[in-house]
Nucleic acid binder design. Structure first.
Length: 465
RNA sequence: GGUCGGUUGGCAGAAUGGCUUAUGCAGAGGACUGCAAAUCCUUUUAUACUGGUUCGAUUCCGGUACCGACCUCCA
């Protein structure tokens, strides 16, 4: 039974989907104006883990994640780059998808782009205007009137009356054409800095505000209410707070049943920032020689709601773990020749139950992983007993776990040329003759061809590395 | 100023009113081994401090210290 920590209620709840056997979930995607850094990627690995585990559980999942391709930053930086907005965001959108693929993040079922969903946003805004939850200004902006919404800020624990206006001093003075400083923009009227980035609407030309896109797209693709909405903790307020306000006021029904938020990471003990130069991208880390699996494992090994410090030094240790999984899987393929291990069925039951118990508890990957380690130790202890059928069953269950975790290194095609087979036989003959010089020379020769040979009591085994 | 979270060994990180405070990494020692690799075994004063409740608290309640998040850019 899957339980989920629901930010809306601040407690774990048993998950019950709107439609039996189906899950519809929405994750706030990136703004594609630059390369994604590892802090962004933690969120997307978290979404992916959820997506994969829901499928593991047998749900028919519809996962929708947006790409924000219109906002202040995309407009500003595309102009700086001397490019059309679309060309500019296409590039970073593709880079983002590449990073996701590298980290074994499965593509969401639906990946809408804000600029292609303007009609849905116009409908939603018009609805709010008609119902008196929004108002236009002379500049052509449309704002949401938060004092019309008695539930505003509930999830974030924010009382609208006590909002500290301009807490960080970040609001520009000229933004105060609103009736109330806390009202937020649904639509921004065209200004000349926007260039040709505008759309025509019944209330004038302009572009969408930040929050409206997620409300409009999730309604369009998932309906309302839908099951799960994910995002980083920073989005609880204002972004998700405003999404709730817009959607619930517009349609008079609940917006989302379960809100899940991942915590942020720091890097080597410090908050990520451009000035510190610690906004690593996936590519930066790959260039340093860390594997994609080691990077993904860094995100998987800790709970998604736990703040974590991303330490580069940890990646080497992660590689050991990933290799441990790899060794385990390849030995099952190459080294099994026993009579059969009678306790395997029980061990399989234990590990399966343990894995699911951990994952069912709000995606507690630490517990799930510890069950896998215990299981592997048990199997390794009895390795010489394993039959081919035993090995198949173990591989099957491990691959099932990895369909969720996606941290096992991919196995290379394991096959030898006749010449390589001959070399291994020659080497073994040399070993039996205690001709260590020849044996070691042949071992090196094979290794240069990417073949690692190990000697076991029952003879040599090899693998392509 | 308001709201919320955290503090577990060398590091990462679970869990729990008692029975082993998991698991992994790193280090040390050992087994196996021609060497290597893999694997197995053993191992290091870990629950911030403090008061309370309790037969018993790392866990529940209070206080203190420190760290952090959010309060209209943000994964």
């Amino acid at each position: 039974m899957l339980t989920i920590y629901n930010t809306a209620n601040h407690r774990k709840e048993v998950f019950k989907p709107v439609h039996e056997g189906e899950v519809r979930f929405y994750g706030c995607g990136p703004t594609i104006y630059n390369y994604a850094h590892i802090g962004n990627m933690r969120a997307f690995v978290f979404y992916d883990l959820l997506n994969r585990y829901l499928r593991y559980k047998g749900y028919k999942v519809t996962f929708c994640m947006n790409l924000t391709d219109i906002d202040d930053k995309t407009i500003r930086d595309s102009q700086k780059a001397g490019k059309k907005l679309r060309e500019f965001t296409d590039f970073y959108g593709e880079e983002f998808m590449k990073d996701c693929a590298t980290l074994h993040i499965q593509k969401p079922d639906i990946v809408p782009r804000a600029t292609e969903e303007i009609p849905a946003m116009i409908t939603l805004i018009q609805n709010l205007l008609d119902k008196g939850f929004a108002y236009k200004t002379e500049k052509g902006d449309v704002y949401f009137k938060i004092d019309q919404d008695p539930n505003y800020g509930q999830m974030a624990g924010i009382d609208a009356k006590n909002l500290r206006v301009n807490a960080d001093g970040r609001l520009a003075q000229d933004e105060y054409e609103k009736e109330n400083a806390q009202d937020f923009a649904l639509w921004k009227g065209w200004v000349k800095e926007d260039g040709d980035n505008y759309w025509e609407t019944p209330w004038g030309k302009g572009r969408p505000g930040w929050h409206i896109e997620c409300s409009a797209m999730s309604k369009k693709y998932l309906g309302q209410p839908f099951d799960i909405h994910t995002g980083g903790v920073d989005l609880i307020f204002p972004h998700h707070t405003n999404e709730i306000a817009q959607s619930e006021c517009a349609y008079g029904t609940k917006f989302v049943n379960y809100w899940m938020h991942n915590e942020h990471i720091t890097v080597n003990g410090q908050k990520m920032s451009k000035s510190l130069g610690n906004c690593f991208t996936v590519n930066d880390l790959l260039k340093k020689g860390y594997s994609a699996e080691a990077i993904r494992y860094e995100f998987i090994k800790a709970h998604y709601r736990q703040k974590m410090d991303f330490q580069e030094s940890a990646l080497a240790g992660n590689q050991s773990v990933v290799d441990k999984f790899g060794n385990f899987m390849i030995r099952l393929k190459n080294e099994v020749n026993g009579e059969g291990w009678n306790d395997l069925p029980e061990a399989l039951d234990v590990v399966q139950a343990g894995f699911e118990k951990g994952m069912d508890d709000d995606l507690n990957t630490s517990v799930a992983l510890s069950e896998l380690f215990d299981f592997m130790t048990k199997v390794n202890k009895n390795f010489d007993k394993l039959s081919l059928e035993n090995a198949k069953n173990i591989q099957k269950v491990m691959e099932k776990f990895d369909s969720v975790l996606a941290i096992f290194p991919s196995l290379k095609q394991q096959s030898l040329t006749p010449e390589q087979e001959r070399l291994i036989k020659t080497r073994q003959a040399a070993r039996l003759a205690k001709d260590w010089g020849t044996a070691d020379a042949l071992k090196k020769e094979l290794l240069d061809q990417g073949i690692e040979v190990k000697d076991t009591p029952t003879g040599p085994v090899w693998r392509i590395i």
